[in-house]
Design a protein around this nucleic acid. Structure first.
Length: 121
DNA sequence: AGCGTGACGAGTA
DNA sequence: ATACTCGCCACGC
């Protein structure tokens, strides 16, 4: 067996790290793909995105978002439902036009991964 | 071995 | 505000 493949019941270590990071994002907060990569000190936003696309279903994927605050295409309503349930800061659309969903207010919702339990002082 | 694609990001026009 | 380009890294053809 020169071919040593990874166990089927285990994820690549990098993937597990990404999922771990996603799990520790507190409700009402989000981290960008790039932030997660930076927090891991390895890989880049595309690698994090790849992991989320493949294994994100096992973690609160809606807390890992794009840097521009756009909701996940194909899961916009689902993500939005979670955001409203968790009180995640959203930037309401000022345009009266419908079909235009709100984006995340990154300035308030972005979490740096410093302290999961932030006091309000 | 080259090329395109992707749950990305930042910069520039 | 949007559109486009380039950089990034892994994967598939």
């Amino acid at each position: 067996m020169s071919n040593e493949s990874l166990p089927a019941d285990a994820l690549p270590e990098y993937a597990e790290r990404v999922l771990e990071a996603a799990e520790l994002i507190p409700p009402g907060r989000v981290m960008t793909y790039g932030d997660v990569a930076e927090w891991l000190e390895e890989g880049g936003p595309r690698q994090v995105g790849r992991v989320m696309a493949l294994y994100g279903g096992a973690v609160p994927w809606w807390r890992v978002v794009r840097a521009d605050g756009a909701l996940l295409p194909g899961h916009e309503l689902e993500a939005l439902d979670h955001y409203r349930a968790e009180g995640t800061p959203l930037k309401e659309a000022s345009r009266a036009a419908e079909g235009h969903l709100p984006r995340l207010d990154m300035r308030r919702a972005r979490w740096d991964g410093g302290e999961p339990a932030e006091g309000h002082t």
